[in-house]
Every structure is written in C-alpha cells, then in structure tokens.
C-alpha cells in the first residue's frame, strides 16, 4: 500500500495508511503526550492529552487516522493550554507521584495544579485494596485511563474481572459485582499491572521491597 504524506509541525512525514497521527508523529520523532493510549490496549481518545490541531480543529492524535495532505500542529498555543489544564486537573485529583512521565509533562507545560484549589473528586481518599497474594490496588493513584480494563477484557486477556463503575469525577475501577479479585474471575496475569501508568496497580513484592523488608 502506498504511503500517505502528512505534515506534522512542518515536517513532511510519509505515513503508512493505517497509522494514526500519533504513530506518524512518533515516526518523525515528534512527541505527543498521552495518558490513556498504550500499544497493547484498545484505549484511545479518553485522556484528551494528545489533542492536536488539524485544520483549525482539535483531534485526538491517538484515535485519528492519517489523511492525505493533512496538516497537523502538535504544539499550538491552544493545544498547549488544553494540555496544561488537563494535566493540572489530573494531578490535582490523583496521586501521580509515581508517574514520572506525567511529572515530566507537568514541568514541560508549566502545569500548576494548585491554581484550581482543593481536589473535588474524592479520589485521593481511596484506601489501598490488598485482596490477593500478588498485587495491590491503590486507586488514589488511578486517573481512569482504563488500560487495565482493556487488558483484562477485550484487549488482551478476555477475562473481564475488572469493571468500571460510577459516573463523572466519581467514576473508577472496580471488579465484577465489586467482589474480591479472585472471586471476580481474576487469573492474576498481571497484565493490568503491566499497562498501569500510575502505579495504582503495584506488585506486592515491590511494595514490600520499597518498605525495606524482605518478602
């Protein structure tokens, strides 16, 4: 199949026809931040951090296919302000202390969550859930990227032990019927831990080691 020529930040990129704008940008060394996208999961268009300008419109780079002649601006003023606001709100509401990538972007975009006052979503008050011998779920650190849900269900494992609950800012990850993981059908493949970007899902062994004790 012939390649598709697109312009990204002034660079001519020859993209494969099935690439997304994100893939095309990465192939050209242009970094676009994303929180929900992961190469192994079907999560896309959720965090909206990868929004870029295409012909004056904002489109999510991770969920937008390249089109011939497309001109993409990944760093316009509006894009940068949007990213800053999203990063600020995420960091305000979520404990992101272990998400180094996000912290890097916070710095890059000059994000200052304190501008928005106290958190509203109640996420930071969530208690750790330790119901199995393998990993702990600390949902104060979860910003609902849903990679774990996809890894557990459609994307990788086809188990659907994890489920999404609630709406709006209160929404979050639970298990089927809110059961303990094993009861919910979890087979502890840990592919959710694998794709978790925030450290909300953390191996028990790692927690123990971090606390300095032997396992």
């Amino acid at each position: 199949m012939s390649r598709v020529a697109v312009v990204i930040d002034g660079l001519l990129v020859q993209a494969e026809p099935d690439w997304t704008v994100l893939e095309a940008a990465r192939s050209a060394g242009v970094e676009i931040p994303t929180l929900c996208h992961h190469e192994r999961t079907g999560t896309e268009g959720i965090c909206r951090l990868c929004m870029v300008e295409v012909a004056g419109r904002m489109e999510p780079a991770c969920a937008t296919r390249v089109r011939p002649g497309m001109v993409v601006n990944t760093r316009g003023a509006a894009v940068e302000q949007l990213r800053r606001t999203v990063l600020e709100l995420v960091a305000l509401e979520t404990n992101v202390e272990y998400d180094d990538e996000l912290s890097g972007w916070m710095e890059e975009y000059g994000a200052d969550p304190t501008r928005w006052g106290e958190p509203l979503a109640g996420r930071r008050q969530r208690k750790p859930l330790a119901d199995n011998p393998f990993f702990v779920r600390e949902y104060d650190k979860c910003y609902n990227c849903r990679r774990c849900l996809d890894a557990c269900g459609e994307g990788i494992q086809g188990v659907w032990a994890l489920a999404f609950t609630g709406r709006g800012a209160e929404a979050g990850v639970t298990t089927t019927f809110d059961l303990e993981l094993a009861e919910a059908g979890c087979i502890f493949c840990g592919n959710c831990v694998e794709v978790c970007p925030t450290g909300a899902l953390v191996p028990l062994e790692e927690l123990r080691a971090a606390k300095g004790g032997p396992s």
Binding site: L35, E93, W116, N144, G168, A171
Partner: peptide, 18 residues
C-alpha cells in the same frame, strides 16, 4: 453537567465539577 458527565474523557469528568 458535573452530575451528568459519564466519566469517560478527562476534560469533562474532571472539568465539569470545577
């Protein structure tokens, strides 16, 4: 809007309460 946000995208789910 804060009440009715579905919780999918970040700007709406986090932004509407603010």
């Amino acid at each position: 809007f804060a009440h009715e946000s579905c919780g999918k995208c970040f700007p709406c789910s986090l932004g509407t309460p603010h």
